[in-house]
Design a protein around this nucleic acid. Structure first.
Length: 195
DNA sequence: AGCACA
């Protein structure tokens, strides 16, 4: 099949590559060993290909008296090198100095009163983590969620500074249940962000 | 790197 296609079309036409790829894709559509049900799909693809190839078919057209078929440049595909010379930086303008009272270790995250704790041990319990966090002032509540893999925790505090204190203090610290290194603490991701 | 509840 593919050999016939390559011979039939002239290499000067840029559409050859496109047609060959389409036919090869239709061939790959056949699922090996799937059974006779695939025949319907093959028919549909074959009819579609016939319609596509009929337009570029090399039949001699006597309908047009001018006969300027060679001058038709629709099939010519010139290789154009697309260059983006001017790179516009979208965030070039710095609006103002950040008025953050707290110097955040992770500058990318927005400070908030809820901490996101990850890199916990596989069997880290909420009780164990709560015992550590409850030593700090302003501790509100703790939730542990186990989504398939490793558990993650959310610790909420009264004030942002209190959460920051806990984050900087317990950062990379090991729990008795930790076996994958110290826990990783960030500010919890909030839907409310500065525009 | 991995971000849920209300």
């Amino acid at each position: 099949m593919h050999a016939l296609n390559g011979v039939k079309f002239d290499p000067q036409a840029g559409s050859v590559l496109h047609i060959e790829l389409a036919r090869s894709n239709s061939r790959r559509k056949r699922k090996p060993g799937s059974g006779p049900y695939v025949v319907i799909d093959n028919r549909i693809k074959a009819s579609a290909n016939t319609q596509e190839t009929s337009s570029d078919d090399g039949d001699s057209d006597t309908e047009e008296p001018s006969g300027a078929e060679d001058a038709d440049a629709s099939n010519k595909d010139e290789l154009k090198t697309v260059k983006s010379d001017t790179v516009q930086d979208p965030e070039n303008s710095v609006p103002a100095a950040n008025e953050q009272l707290e110097r955040t270790i992770d500058e990318g995250a927005q400070a908030c009163s809820t901490l996101f704790i990850a890199n916990l041990g596989p069997n880290c319990t909420e009780y164990e983590l709560k015992q550590v966090l409850s030593k700090y002032p302003g501790f509100n509540m703790l939730k542990i969620r186990t989504k398939g893999g490793m558990p993650v925790a959310f610790a909420d505090f009264e004030q942002v500074e209190q959460a920051t204190k806990v984050m900087t203090d317990l950062q990379s610290s090991l729990l008795p249940s930790s076996d994958r290194g110290g826990m990783h603490i960030e500010y919890a991701r909030s839907k409310m962000r500065k525009p």
